[in-house]
Design a protein around this nucleic acid. Sequence first.
DNA 1: TCATTATTGACCACTTTGGTCGGTTGTGCT
DNA 2: AGCACAACCGACCAAAGTGGTCAATAATGA
Lengths: 208, 208
Amino acid sequence: MYENFIGLKEEKRDIIINSALMEFAKKGYDLASTNEMVKAAGISKGALFHYFASKKALFLFLCEYVFGVVSREFYEQIGHCGGDLLARYRRAAMLKGAVYQRYPPMFEFIKRLTVEKSSEIAAELKEQLEKMTDYGYQCLLGNLDTSLFRQDVPADKIRDLTIWALENYGNRSLKLTGDQRAEDIDMEALSFDFDQYLDVLRKCFYKQ
Amino acid sequence: MYENFIGLKEEKRDIIINSALMEFAKKGYDLASTNEMVKAAGISKGALFHYFASKKALFLFLCEYVFGVVSREFYEQIGHCGGDLLARYRRAAMLKGAVYQRYPPMFEFIKRLTVEKSSEIAAELKEQLEKMTDYGYQCLLGNLDTSLFRQDVPADKIRDLTIWALENYGNRSLKLTGDQRAEDIDMEALSFDFDQYLDVLRKCFYKQ
DNA sequence: TCATTATTGACCACTTTGGTCGGTTGTGCT
DNA sequence: AGCACAACCGACCAAAGTGGTCAATAATGA
């Protein structure tokens, strides 16, 4: 498989990966155009099909690839982080920033995967995605130490509300910083702001 | 304008509106296909262009239309509801359910509008959308009685976290009920579940 | 120098696009 | 019934775009 592509130097590979991720993220599998990808990546049509046998092969490579990155650089780093939900999310936010620097469209791509409907890739995708989701759930939310939460309201509600609020915070940041070049984003200010929200959640949802 | 369309009987009009909303919501302006719309609505191509002069006119009609519905059936009803953020959101959830029954794709359509990039409609859309957003912000979040919140954390953080958590709750419900026929959804169970989350927020974020 | 690999972009057959238009059907009035 | 007029249909159009190919060129390393 993909040996022609793997041999490319990292920089060129990343450009192609990001162009393809972005196109798939924007339009979904069926409507994504390989013409747009090669235009965005600055390579020829022939090159793309020299690297990948078909559009489908390219898509499946990208899935494999992002699942690898997310597993290694993201989920596995959260695993050994104790049972404190907010501590995990803090770490997750940091890691997300690092991955975003290198592959800006990756999270959009993954988000799109969860609603992807195309029958051409449904079977292969579903299996991989389920495995990924389970693993992510396990790392982020498994073995939670709910004894840290205040005890006068149900722990699962606290957990849900925390997740939802922070997810939305993440999306908002992504949208706000979406126009800037990745290296221009002031990560320091962002994480300071984020910590303030974490403090509030800790004060309101945790034992004092 | 649209006089040929306005004259149609309500049922047929709603089918066409929903088909068009769904197609635009799924693919965005540029990629949305009028062919798919007429197929979904069960009308002929000629009919659609008999009702609307062009794809663009259809799109702008839909914008106008949903803004009207949302203003009348949604924002204005929240206005006179006191300054309690959670009470407003409770009311908003109820109203949302009612609108959803009649126009399932409407919220997806509106969500899509906020990220719509097509240059063909950019100018007209931007103006209308801004006006709408401001008005919605005013109704949902204007004149908030923050003295109800606990005073040991910043009120704006409480407000943000509440909004984010509940927005996500809404999206999740939308996704869970997405496959069911609108009239099959158990609104009672849904609103009971929702109230439990509101209770938690009230206990954690409000003065006791 | 030359053999081999990487890369190009014009080209292919095919599908889909927004929109048109001559013709048919339905409706309400006289 | 006969008529006028609007509603509606769907085959059709030129244009654009689709995933994918391939003969020709450029780059590479021995």
